[in-house]
Design a protein around this nucleic acid. Structure first.
Lengths: 349, 349
DNA sequence: CGCCTGCTCCAAACCGTTTTGGATGCCTGA
DNA sequence: TCAGGCATCCAAAACGGTTTGGAGCAGGCG
């Protein structure tokens, strides 16, 4: 059933039917109702491609998610972020177009999106420190919102981000308050912007109190269970083992917990662990009593916000870049406790 | 730069330019080269919406992934499945359209896909036992491939699935061979087709040997870490605790491991654990020496196969439904071992 | 009465491609 | 010489909507 057929069935012109269905004022309320009723009866749905061609709006948002070519790793937070964004899109009648593109072909992907006119806007995932994509997208001239920030970029652009620095600063302070002095950081890959900021927060907390942080306690790698486990196992074998560990996500934390148990130590008593929890739906940290003490910020909520922001930019034009900084909450779980006495005494506070 | 402009710049008709670019024989090799060169120089890319409208093909595949409304759970395997499918699409110039739809609105989503003409085919995720979507999609008349199967459906349709029954049968047999007689099954939600088949495999292995399986050792729930942990903790507290556990995924297995440790038992010695491993990129079980003994089947590979199959159906018409059954490999890790002696002696073999 | 305004509606152009159905000119063979 | 065939190109009609620029008609006002 096309609009023309519907018009013929109603003995009306396509113009009138189109206006009636799209709520323009130039059509009487009586005929509008008649048209609407007929449309419902016939189950008429406008062909999006035709409409897009006529209006110039694609009614779709593109997500290009980078595939780190070496390890073929798909970032586990994408699923939840996209679920959040998807909620918003479907409420506004937008579609979500996803391309999974190897790091090297990203540029081409954005230009194709633009030229093929298949999307009205783009969400940029996983920005690196001096990400060149932002410059590219500005040049291409397509509305976009970045999930995260690109530290070294001097361009102005719209973003939604979690306050990574503040979260890790608070987490570190929490441990310092508990008397811990040797704290390890098991961070994500530090070419990612978020990892850089987290490290900065970790260092800032130390500096605030004039405590020098030990560079040999800071690690960066892909956030797998194995990375958490192996790093922790090595740490605990050292004579100067840390009494606390901060890590970037639930997944390495599981490995950390395993290594602690294997060393016959108890998490929360012998070694404190604090994580950042993206509140992933399939890896819950426990709502009521969290397993891990954690800084929590829902990545799904970030998806909602980024989508809302982008749709708003598309609708109202982007006079000036918008930004949204989400604060993480600190949840006290069972994985942290005061620094063991022996550690405190041997430490020159 | 539109095709018309390009044609004008070349002093050719749009027809000729279109034919030249699309490799039709009615254009001389000389002009074809000239057109191609100009297209490259101007960076011309055809507008997909216009092309779609003219050809009737959307060059896009729809994935509608159900959102279990109650818990807002996003199945963690989607990310990897979609990564696999995405690889195939981008090679063939297809886009991937994703809608995340609450269980209740699935029907509407499919019909919209069809009527809005925004996709050429659909991948159906997470089929339930008597899934009504298959009938619906056949009625709508849109090519589709199911990831998994719908057990009770008598319709014929195309699918890609892992041999869930066989995998769990083998896993169970492996444990039975090791002397285990009380084996627990910590399964996914048993309205999902895959969970039903896994249970069937578990039961079949027992029946083969005339061993009655204890219904009180079989559990079904959402596959979270907590579910694995709590179920195992309760099991191990029983006087007739099982000596082995089979579970559906890496995530509950992590909880199982935690509960075993908390009971001061050792995994692989006191309690054997065997999992199904979807080979998720962000939750690797270890390539060379797996942590868990596991039946492994890459869900990313399943994504590739489903996408390839669907594109083939779209291109060559679906005379008869295609199917592809993937066998899981059994990898021996550190989480299994012979049944403890005390268990073996008390058990009437 | 004539003119203007406002309310409804419509014919036709347009969006950027593909595709149909020729048109043109050249070459070949009878 | 002329019909027929072939190679090459093009004008115009799709595809299914939206949008522009009126047209027709009624009522209000001077």
């Amino acid at each position: 059933m096309t609009l023309k057929e519907l018009a013929k069935a109603l003995s009306l012109s396509p113009t009138t039917v189109s206006r009636a269905l799209n709520g323009f004022p130039e059509v009487s309320e009586a005929t509008r109702k008649r048209v609407q009723a007929a449309a419902d009866a016939y189950g008429y749905r406008p062909n999006m491609r035709a409409r897009s061609l006529a209006t110039g709006r694609a009614m779709a948002i593109g997500h290009v998610i980078p595939l780190a070519s070496e390890h073929e790793m798909v970032n586990p937070v994408f699923a939840d972020f996209i679920a959040g964004a998807g909620e918003v899109y479907s409420k506004s009648g937008y579609d979500m177009l996803i391309s999974i593109v190897p790091e090297a072909e990203q540029e081409r992907a954005y230009e194709e999106f633009k030229h093929k006119a298949s999307v009205d806007g783009i969400i940029v995932h996983a920005p690196r420190s001096g990400d060149q994509r932002i410059k590219l997208l500005k040049a291409v001239g397509i509305p976009f919102v970045v999930h995260g920030r690109a530290s070294k970029s001097d361009e102005a652009y719209s973003w939604v981000d979690m306050n990574n620095l503040r979260a890790f600063q608070r987490a570190t302070n929490f441990l310092l308050d508990l008397g811990h002095r040797r704290i390890a950081l098991i961070n994500g890959l530090e070419d990612m912007d978020f990892a850089i900021r987290r490290r900065a927060g970790f260092e800032a907390a130390h500096e605030e109190r004039g405590i020098t942080h030990d560079e040999s306690l800071m690690f960066s790698g892909e956030m797998t269970e194995k990375f958490g486990h192996d790093t922790t196992a090595a740490l605990l074998a050292r004579p100067d083992a840390p009494t606390a560990i901060i890590t970037s996500s639930m997944i390495p934390a599981i490995g950390i917990r395993r290594a602690i148990r294997e060393a016959n130590l108890e998490m929360g008593r012998d070694v404190s662990v604090i994580i950042h929890d993206d509140d992933l739906s399939y890896l819950p940290n426990g709502r009521d009593d969290p397993i891990f003490t954690a800084t929590r910020s829902s990545v799904r909520e970030a998806g909602r916000r980024a989508a809302t922001m982008l749709l708003d930019i598309i609708a109202n034009g982007s006079d000036t870049p918008r930004t949204s900084l989400m604060e993480a909450e600190l949840l006290i779980g069972q994985s942290t406790g005061p620094a063991p006495a022996h550690a405190r005494t041997t430490d020159p506070v």
